[in-house]
Design a protein around this nucleic acid. Structure first.
Lengths: 203, 203
DNA sequence: GGGGTTCTTTACTGAGCAGTCCAGATCGTT
DNA sequence: AACGATCTGGACTGCTCAGTAAAGAACCCC
């Protein structure tokens, strides 16, 4: 009954997210979004509501995917936990360096722009932070079980530190650090995780 | 010869910086600035040029002060280098937590918002990064001389890591981490710096 | 205290913005 | 094939924005 929409909702949201990520919330107009998606303003309003709602929807969609892919990348056997951890960071660095538009990390960008200004956005970003920290903490616990990490260390505190590094690295890519420096920072971060006491025999 | 300005240039720039820091570059209008400084639009244009120039001036002023105070806080005798390092981080956390308006760190905020969009702003932010990293590296070298840090470690890489942590912590304050968590992250960061080999006798 | 210079204020301009509306196009249904 | 429901795109509205211009106020110097 009636004409079906001529667009794919996920594709549109991905384009919207990309556009917001490029120039920020305030820096993106509905005309930009209309041009990027190919949809007219009327269609956008009918399908997604006003600008803020559209943004929150795109942000939620991005966070969902980001949380799922992060959890998947960090899950696995205890033996390779440390390798997964390093790959998680290096992969994030490479993805951002290889992005032709040098887009800032969505999460970092809006944590800075909207925290304290938009309650709903802040809540969603907080949830994303918790998810990333939980995934990292799980990987750290795996490393502890495998004897790669001091079992006395608190995985949540260390995971918080890793999120801090992750976000900090993302924000510094924008000012032109090269890959070698970034990789060195990642390795220094991981080298700083507390080693297990020498008495315990490593695998 | 002529009427002198009825305002203090430094005070105005500080108010401007505060206003930009509150809502970002795109989120701040000249009316906001006019209200915050008490100056009319004409006066602002005559004294500082257009919005972008005014912003760059305020950013430069802020960076100058930030670089000077950072260098001062990190300079001192080798014996207390590690203490200064910790105080530098804790002080930054407390300043931001105690800020009644919960303003984001100026540097972090505009690194994210303007990197890759405004060449001059990016260059100034890059310079600020280099200055912060150099001051931290100097402090790390002092710690090495005092036997608190592995002399084989590269101070610049570790300083880069500390800047990353510094910026990352600043951006995560916005989503509501409490002071205890932040202090734990600071301590975990410092604990991760490479200890000197046990053969060397500590002071 | 008068003159010239500089600051300050206000009103204005053209552009861009978010959001609305409606006429026409499109499609499933009957 | 015709109907009705839904989608689409462009025109429109009222507002805010950055930047300008000009009239008036304040001040220093002589």
């Amino acid at each position: 009954m009636g004409r079906p929409p001529g667009f794919d909702r996920r594709e549109v949201l991905a384009a919207v997210e990309r556009e917001f990520r490029k120039n920020g919330y305030d820096g993106t107009s509905l005309d930009d979004i209309s041009a990027a998606t190919g949809l007219g303003r009327g269609s956008l309003y009918a399908a997604f509501g006003d600008k803020r709602t559209l943004f929150l929807t795109a942000l939620g969609d991005y966070c969902d995917q980001d949380e799922a892919s992060g959890a998947a990348a960090l899950a696995g056997p205890d033996e390779t936990a440390m390798e997964r951890l390093r790959a998680y960071f290096i992969d994030a660095v490479d993805r951002q360096l290889n992005d032709p538009e040098q887009l800032a990390c969505m999460t970092s960008r809006f944590t800075v722009e909207l925290a304290g200004r938009d309650r709903d956005a802040t809540a969603r970003l907080r949830q994303g932070f918790e998810a990333q920290r939980a995934a990292l903490a799980g990987c750290l616990r795996a490393a502890q079980r495998n004897g790669d990490l001091d079992p006395a260390a608190d995985p949540v505190t260390l995971a918080t530190l890793l999120v801090v590094d992750f976000r900090g690295i993302g924000s510094l890519i924008g000012i032109g650090l090269d890959r070698a420096e970034l990789v060195a920072v990642v390795d220094a971060t991981l080298a700083g995780l507390p080693a297990p006491p020498p008495s315990a025999a490593a695998s």
